[in-house]
Design a protein around this nucleic acid. Structure first.
Lengths: 144, 144
DNA sequence: TTATGTGCAAACTATTTGCTCGTCT
DNA sequence: AGACGAGCAAATAGTTTGCACATAA
């Protein structure tokens, strides 16, 4: 797999080693999409039950710094990890907690505005937007 | 103060009581702007040293449900509380951690788009946008 | 005199750190 | 041998819960 190759090379270039744990964590992030460290740990432990959650945290941090995965804070609890090429914006409903995904391109106008106005380079692939989803809006109206 | 009045009435209408603790927490949120529960606790304890952090959490939760304050997750650690009328969008730099504020109106086009496209009512006053700030961008370019 | 609010201790969740030991080179 | 990585236990940060006591209505 090229993932394994790519990771191995990236690590080697920095004097780091490829390990089964690192491969398993990357695979888990890839296949789960939007998983918490806890969920990733469970997935990894299906294959290698002795892997410790500490290793999960350390590996996620490493992969994040290498740019292979990214994390988003979708509200309260634990952050959510995805592989870097899985890009979209999250719409988080603060009423029911549901999450929808929308394409990043919808934010292009805003990205342009912020770049010009504030010199701020918005990273749309990192994003969680909070609000009220259609279903919860409908229910609100029915209550009135 | 009308804050005190307003809070007292809101509480009374629901069979709840106005207490010094609640007033102090609301005052602290108001004067600190973007404070964590921990920071709010410290501020309150300058006046009333025996107030427990538990009370801070319970009161913030109450004020949040009453709509008098709101909280935002600006990245990792603890959430950040502000009074409800202090509305703006946060630009969080994921490199240096700095926070800028911009007016909510800049998001109006996006709010419209999401309303039409997804029936999602984006709450722009709740928002933290992550990216790279001007200073960090400049430094990146110098390094290259 | 009862509902409401507070303080205190303990539990809990998510995460980090220190240390030892194993292993690749 | 020396650097790097993993496992384990303990520490830490942030938050919640249970319970007993206090107090306003």
């Amino acid at each position: 797999m090229e993932t394994a190759r790519g990771l191995r090379k990236t690590l080697h270039d920095r004097g780091m080693r490829m390990t089964p744990q690192r491969q398993l964590v990357l695979d888990a992030v890839r296949s789960l999409e939007h998983a918490t460290p806890e969920q990733i740990c469970q997935r990894v432990q299906e294959t290698a039950p002795t892997v410790n959650i500490t290793t999960i945290y350390r590996t996620l941090d490493l992969l994040d710094r290498l740019g292979l995965v990214r994390h988003t804070h979708l509200g309260h609890g634990a952050p959510s990890y995805s592989v870097d090429d899985h890009q979209h914006v999250h719409l988080v409903c603060h009423v029911c907690g549901s999450i929808q995904e929308i394409p990043c391109e919808l934010l292009d106008p805003l990205v342009g505005t912020l770049r010009e106005r504030d010199g701020f380079e918005l990273d749309a692939s990192h994003l969680a937007l909070s609000g009220t989803c259609r279903d919860c809006l409908t229910q609100e109206q029915e209550t009135e």
